[in-house]
Design a protein around this nucleic acid. Structure first.
Lengths: 169, 169
DNA sequence: TTTTCCATGTAACTCGTTACATGATTTC
DNA sequence: GAAATCATGTAACGAGTTACATGGAAAA
């Protein structure tokens, strides 16, 4: 549902066509979320059928025709509902990397350290990428800041685990 | 793949049947991961077909017969591979709640605060639940500790967002 | 001139879920 | 005697992905 919320929120600011929405999300919001092309087109189609958004065929010269979407009155109501529901709730997060952690002691300490250093590097890379994205202002930045906050917290955590390993070897 | 790793790791310690594995994960590891019954049975079946684990029918009196699984030599190799791959990599996390955050300013500050306080409560509840689980020792606890660490970090974050809102109202 | 980009979409697949079915056994 | 628990499974569905198809336009 949060992808629909995202699309509605973006269309609320200005009407856009599918490819435009896809590109914006994959380029500017890649660190916080993602949305593949077929998913984008499918959701827009669905929401158009449900009357949340309206679509307009726009032909420019001989280029491929674009479907430009805009929020309807129904869409605005749904947006409000989805937004409030989203902000009020907390979806617990599962870390796929925790299955590995649970069996950390099954590996020789040196191997475990080597693996975790690689993981640390990956987190660090992700953090640098997130930090290098320029601020745009407004609440749209909150998602990005949250991701940065989280990645910093992950570095603290993995360093704790590494320290625990060093103590054992 | 991390669910297979989890099952392999548990079976490596002692042979178990499907229901047993399902119960252990849903009861003792609920905060860090989950595994529904059909998923458990499906994965065990799959891994048995692939030769990662062996199955033994055990009939006790007139009770429903149980399939007891144990790790094979192939399974041990796969476990090692999966474990190292898991520990070496980092799967970036998407927060479904961030779509809402991005549109926080579209709501009156008072409404936004009210919603976020509810979310804060949900995180706080989750944290208390996680903290109240007794420690078992060994690296199996790392997943739980990670979740606690994360939830604490989430509380810090949401308090920052709330402070930002108060500054605006 | 071949590759990349724009713009849309379909088909098949993966992973996991919910809901349901079965049947014995212990508990209330 | 009814309900919950043990133990296994099937069927249908949902959300999202990858891979592929199409066809013009811009760029290398």
């Amino acid at each position: 549902m949060e992808r629909k919320l995202l699309l509605l929120g973006l269309l609320r600011r200005q009407e856009m066509h599918g490819y435009q929405l896809y590109e914006f999300i994959e380029r500017d919001l890649a660190i916080c979320t993602d949305l593949k092309k077929p998913t984008a087109y499918y959701l827009l189609d669905k929401m158009a059928q449900d009357g949340w958004i309206g679509e307009e065929q726009v032909q420019e010269g001989n280029r491929p025709p674009r479907k430009v979407y805009h929020l309807t009155d129904t869409g605005e109501i749904v947006f409000q509902e989805l937004l409030r529901a989203n902000l009020s709730s907390y979806q617990p997060v599962r870390f796929s990397g925790d299955s590995g952690l649970a069996f950390l002691d099954e590996l020789p300490a040196a191997d475990a350290s080597a693996c975790l250093y690689q993981r640390r590097q990956a987190i660090s890379d992700e953090l640098l990428a997130a930090q290098s994205i320029p601020e745009h202002g407004g609440s749209a930045q909150l998602a990005l800041r949250h991701q940065v906050h989280h990645l910093e917290s992950e570095l603290v955590w993995i360093d704790e685990v590494l320290a625990r390993l060093e103590g054992k070897s």
